[in-house]
Design a protein around this nucleic acid. Structure first.
Lengths: 112, 112
DNA sequence: TTTATACATAGAAGATAGTCAATATGTTGT
DNA sequence: ACAACATATTGACTATCTTCTATGTATAAA
């Protein structure tokens, strides 16, 4: 199976920020609303909301409204995808792109 | 053990780029010099060199000179750190930061 | 010593990202 | 309808990132 580098790197980029990886960690225990999350950070509410929006955009978290509150929680399916993605990336194997170079010039090149 | 969010997010940021995650994947099979790597990308040599420099700066890859060539390879120790880091981040547990909120106001706050 | 090859560094342009203040939207209670 | 609260969006500022061209450095060969 082909590795989806575009999707994988988008998810990585979403969590590759000290604030957002920390948000993700806190949410890994339980869902939480923004005002609760804010207790952990020295950031304004719009900034935190922006970070949550980015995590949601790539599917790392989901949100659920309950009255005035928006509860955010981890999307375990995406975490599972990420784990599998990184396994594929780091595991040396016969499907690695490094084997495709023999086909160069034949029009079958796989480029990143 | 405390999670090192700063270190973890630096490594994540290094690989959170389509080009660099692809470099890492190709190197996962075997070490390679820059001119060989360049066959896989439509990028100039300085650009590729810059990406390799970023990966090396956070320890994801190491380099070794042999004559005119610089051979880059994966640093498996850092891959192992990353795996453990992500496990800690995503695993709900008693050491999660979400449990530290009870100590707020006591000067024992753990902030991200 | 000169020339060629492999790679790194410097500097700049354009794009993207993190943050905030201000404001808008949505919900609840009076 | 209005006020209060929770969250999202907008616009602006600054910083960082990706990429390039131009140039520098190191090694090997002639």
């Amino acid at each position: 199976m082909e590795i989806d580098f575009a999707k994988g790197s988008l998810i990585l980029k979403a969590i590759a920020d000290p604030t957002r990886i920390c948000i993700v960690h806190i949410l890994s225990c339980d869902e939480m609303c923004v005002c609760d999350l804010q207790e952990y950070f020295k950031l304004t509410q719009p900034t935190l909301s922006h970070h949550l929006g980015q995590l949601k955009a790539v599917g790392v978290v989901t949100s659920r409204r309950e009255g005035k509150w928006m509860y955010y929680s981890i999307n375990r399916d995406v975490v599972k995808f990420l784990t599998g993605f990184l396994d594929s990336v780091f595991l040396p194997g016969s499907e690695c792109l490094c084997r495709t170079l023999e086909t160069f010039g034949t029009g079958k090149e796989t480029s990143c």
